[in-house]
Design a binder for these strands. Structure first.
Length: 588
DNA sequence: GCCGTTTTCGGCCCGACTGTTTTCAGTCG
């Protein structure tokens, strides 16, 4: 079930679309879009707020606050209902077709009564668009192609898939003579969990050789647009990639601009306007004289606007501008801060590599400590037994300290922690009795089945796991699989409160198809005072490197080193892992 | 419809590319 805030955000996004389709004031459209975003990202539940409380939310004034109150009182908003009565849902759906926006959708509806994608396709085949102003043969062709793309997914891809493509393109274009700099920007640089288009930026005196090399890449299936400054292609896998080539002198302003987000850019440009400046991808200019002030580095651009450099992962207009203006940006966690991985598997259960290989690979990464957490017996396909687990523990103790240790103190080798990934059953119980659990250095506990429990039962289930004195980390807390399975329905705020109360950390699972918790939930959990563990959940040696995506996600949740237990020195970590347990000497 | 170191009115980010235009509107990011 969606949070109340998400429901309202969706409603106002719809209202904004309907206003633009009916030819309403473009500034009103933007106001509702901004309000939708602010509400979606607001920490408090909007269903509990009155008109006055709602107006505390940025971009929410009296009119919008009253609509929110109306929505929770009556279940609908009359202004939205009025536009819905005029514009069938299918017309709004038309704007999902690439190259078809609200104006064209409106003309199609008004002139031809078209109110679905199917009707539009039929109308084109019957040549009924021929007499419409603004619709030529090329437009018809583009719409048909757009419908095809829409129907054959045209979906966003996972972060790692986009990163692979971007890394390759950047490497190729960097080799072109005259290409002075090249990098990826956009949502990829911001580490968003999914990527719609890959944005690549290059600096060169002459753009044509770089553009040429770009369009000649072997996996280009289609050239969408091709100009002197911008070229867009689609790859054979259907991913679209934009390349912008700018003069080397504009690098900083261009990188700032093409990194986005759009909302962040609007805010920075507004700051510029208020200072009688103009910010574009070519630089920061004096608005009156047109004279260029700065453009070479992002730092210069931000500084001239009165801001410190803002890390890309924060550039979502979620308060980073205000925090920057007040000197209150967080010192974000970085990948180099991670001292160890606390959730990993071996071939004792469903991992691919033996213990020794995983440990050796972890040591290569320079970790000071590393936890092995294979599944317990309750995931019975894993065939775990007490004996097998205890035998693994003996081997872990033998290997402890004998690998790596670059980041270990005093030149000592990497410390190994023996743990388990427990299964949280439908009642919130885990695999072993407390006597057995006491032998582990740490326990991750995760939901692996019964995803469809109703909200109250699911919440109670996870809260009970938090209350277990031997559960240190809740693994992949919502169990979502991006694009495939939604997160469980649970009262996350109640779970966050339980984590804070019991000293249980929440995992930020770094696997690119999970990224669980997600950024917005991290922001909320952080307000409860929860600690986090950024883990790879590696089932193979190569997966250890996925940690970068978890760190990016943690950054998007504004986390610092102090918030993340696996950046801590080993002694502080071990103290945290003791949790509220009574007794002593059970581990170490 | 919101907002304010331009404060209760009059603004509201900026530019590239495409297609249909004969000077520009629509879409996208």
């Amino acid at each position: 079930m969606a949070r109340s805030n998400d429901e309202v955000a969706a409603l106002f996004h719809e209202y904004a679309d309907l206003i633009s389709i009916t030819g309403g004031d473009a500034f009103r459209t933007r106001t509702y879009e901004k309000a939708a975003r602010s509400i979606g990202g607001y920490h408090a539940d909007v269903s509990t707020l009155d008109v006055k409380g709602l107006q505390e939310i940025p971009n929410v004034g009296k009119s919008i606050a009253e609509k929110v109150v109306e929505y929770f009182r009556s279940g609908k908003v009359s202004a939205v209902e009025e536009l819905r009565a005029k514009i069938p849902a299918g017309v709004r759906r038309l704007t999902a077709i690439p190259t078809l926006g609200p104006r064209k959708a409106s003309v199609l509806h008004e002139e031809l009564g078209i109110s679905s994608v199917e009707e539009l396709a039929d109308a084109i085949h019957e040549e009924r668009l021929r007499d419409l102003r603004g619709f030529g043969p090329k437009t018809e062709e583009n719409i048909l192609h757009g419908i095809e793309l829409l129907q054959s997914s045209g979906e966003r891809v996972l972060l790692d898939a986009a990163m692979d493509v971007a890394d390759d393109i950047v490497a190729e274009l960097s080799r072109v003579t005259g290409c002075r700099r090249c990098t990826y920007a956009g949502s990829l640089r911001r580490y968003r969990e999914t990527i719609g288009d890959v944005d690549v930026l290059a600096a060169a005196g002459k753009s044509e050789p770089v553009m040429q090399a770009f369009t000649e890449l072997p996996y280009v299936s289609e050239i969408i647009a091709h100009g002197g400054k911008k070229t867009s292609i689609r790859t054979t896998k259907g991913l679209s990639v934009d390349l912008r080539v700018v003069p080397p002198d504009s690098w900083g302003a261009a990188l700032q601009y093409f990194t986005g987000s759009k909302a962040h850019n609007i805010r920075t440009r507004e700051l510029a306007v208020h200072q009688k400046l103009k910010l574009s991808e070519y630089g920061l200019f004096d608005a009156e004289s047109g004279e260029k002030i700065v453009s070479q580095t992002e730092e210069e651009v931000y500084a001239r606007l009165g801001l410190p450099w803002i890390p890309p992962t924060l550039r979502e207009d979620r308060g980073e501008i205000e925090a920057g203006l007040h000197g209150e940006l967080p010192g974000l966690i970085e990948e180099g801060d991670i001292k160890g991985d606390l959730h990993t598997h071996t071939d004792l259960t469903d991992g691919l590599a033996p213990l020794e290989e995983m440990v050796a690979a972890a040591a290569e990464r320079g970790y000071a400590y590393y936890a092995i957490t294979d599944h317990g017996p309750n995931l019975y396909m894993q065939r775990m037994t007490d004996e097998r687990m205890l035998a693994q523990r003996d081997r872990v103790r033998e290997l402890d300290g004998s690998f790596g240790g670059k980041r270990g103190k005093g030149g000592k080798g990497m410390r190994l922690l023996h743990g388990a990934e427990l299964n949280i059953d439908p009642d919130g119980d885990v695999d072993w009795p407390e006597e057995f659990l006491a032998g582990f250095d740490l326990c991750v506990a995760s939901v692996h089945s019964h995803f469809n429990q109703e909200r109250e039962a699911m919440t109670r289930r996870i809260v009970r796991a938090c209350e277990n004195p031997y559960v240190n980390i809740i693994g992949h807390p919502t169990t979502r699989i991006i694009g495939k399975r939604p997160g469980v329905d649970a009262d996350l705020d109640a779970i966050f409160a339980a984590c804070a109360r019991t000293g249980t950390a929440l995992e930020i699972n770094a696997h690119p198809d999970r990224l669980d918790l997600r950024d917005e939930d991290i922001l909320r959990a952080r307000r409860h005072g929860v600690k986090f563990a950024v883990d790879s959940d590696a089932h193979a040696v190569l997966h250890l490197a996925n940690l970068r995506y978890g760190v990016g996600t943690a950054q998007r949740g504004w986390l610092t080193k102090d918030d993340v237990i696996n950046t801590w020195p080993e002694t502080r970590l071990r103290r945290f892992l003791r949790k509220g347990r009574t007794g002593r000497g059970a581990h170490g």
